[in-house]
Design a protein around this nucleic acid. Structure first.
Lengths: 175, 175
DNA sequence: TAGAGCATGTAAATGGTTACATGATTGT
DNA sequence: ACAATCATGTAACCATTTACATGCTCTA
């Protein structure tokens, strides 16, 4: 239930409505756990039914902003969940499946696909580096700041790794 | 439809029945696209309905081995699919969601979770390194061998990266 | 010939994706 | 008062996970 808890975290940070939440989400933790507005509205309804979030008394009805805040029960639940032990979810990477097929089949058209993927990794890396430049420095002071920087570093290093990998794959496919 | 094409690749490599396929799968490309036997049997039925695989004439009925081979149509389909351009599937990493919650909530119990994850990454890395030792050398000769080694290297480097990351996370959480 | 384990399956639940629908607000 | 856009949804679909069911084969 990562999506539920990611949303709960966002609402602990600051109360807001679904649309704003979607927006904030897709600019922060959404890099590691993306979600569309449909998923988010569905999850908000579930969270509310669980009593983990509460609507702020503003307005109701379709088309009207409905803001929510995390309830005390929601905060406890989030603390519990953070400490929960769970096996990591399995990796699933389509590029590896294609590369393996290319290994078995012999010469194929995979090059352009890898080039595209290389380009998206480069774009994502640039984006992350810009975020790092803007929000962090070498001397993060608070624990919160350090942890948030670490999360972004995970993204940066992972993108860098995939860029390197794609380049090696291209070299091999070109042979 | 990565699963379908991963299975198709395995059946191009060698014909076999569902159970053996499950086994082979989980020792090779399954590291990058895991699947249970339930998924595999369902997908075999779909692949057969599409005409991309054909049953070998041995036996039928529940409990009896049913071996399949890739059909010519299946091979063409696989070639087409390898060249297909598709956006990479989004990253989803629960650990990042937990770390972010830990950043927002303040001190929490996340340490043990990260330690466990570190341990599984170390175990996986050891396993991959053993596979590398057994199946590959620095001087892979064929294109097929080079590509298969590259795929394994992706796993090795990715695991090494996450080990490093978990260690840095632990250092931060311990402060 | 009974039991262990292999091989093939069914069913329900979960979660994510895609397409579409509708009410409210804002700017012209 | 109309169009554009914002905000909130509904519905159908697809893939994955988990739990369970059943037939077959081999060996003690």
């Amino acid at each position: 239930m990562s999506l539920a808890h990611a949303l709960l975290t966002a609402l602990v940070e600051r109360s807001c409505c679904g649309a704003e939440l979607t927006d904030r989400f897709n600019r922060s933790i959404g890099y590691f756990w993306p979600a569309t507005h449909q998923q988010i509205y569905r999850e908000l309804a579930t969270l509310k039914a669980s009593g983990w979030i509460e609507p702020l008394p503003i307005a109701t009805g379709r088309g009207r902003k409905r803001a929510y805040k995390a309830s005390p029960a929601g905060v406890s639940e989030l603390k519990r969940w953070v400490g929960e032990l769970q096996p990591p979810r399995p990796v699933r990477d389509e590029l590896m499946v294609r590369l393996r097929a290319a290994a078995i089949l012999g010469p194929t058209d995979l090059t352009e696909g890898v080039e595209r993927r290389l380009a998206t990794h480069r774009a994502t890396l640039d984006h992350y580096l810009a975020l790092e430049e803007k929000d962090f420095s070498d001397l993060d002071t608070t624990r919160k700041q350090k942890l948030r920087h670490l999360i972004l570093r995970a993204g940066i290093e992972s993108e860098a790794h995939w860029i390197d990998f794609c380049q090696r794959a291209l070299a091999l496919l070109d042979e």
